[in-house]
Amino acid sequence: MAPTALGEFEQLLLLAVLRLGDEAYGVTIRRAIEEATGRRVSAGAVYTAMGRLESRGLVASAPGKSAPERTGMRRRYYRVQPEGARQVHRALRHFQTMARGLMPELERLAGQPTKPRP
């Protein structure tokens, strides 16, 4: 499949999965993105987007255990595939290259100090 450029949301998803390691499933991914960006994300949106990434071979998934607090429903755990890592790495490198040395100017133009994200 021809590599298509990753969308911003897809980059966020891939980074979240990487960051969460073995604990990457719907709830934790959704929360990680909401906490980092303050953007409201629905469980359904996470699931569909992850499905798209999987069909492009960027992530792999496997059903995990069920839990009583999930009313018996199973979780679906995600892992980033090498191709996914390559693509997100490339995208971030492009960003970094373009942003190098611009932060002071950006802060001045935006009128507020940009805080590093945790």
């Binding site: 359904g44 979780r75 679906r76």
Partner: peptide, 19 residues
């Protein structure tokens, strides 16, 4: 929900609701 998504999405929502 589509059949393949049902279990996982509902499970996610239930889990978060309880928390």
């Amino acid at each position: 929900l589509p059949a393949d998504a049902r279990e996982y999405v509902i499970g996610d929502l239930d889990e978060e609701y309880l928390r």
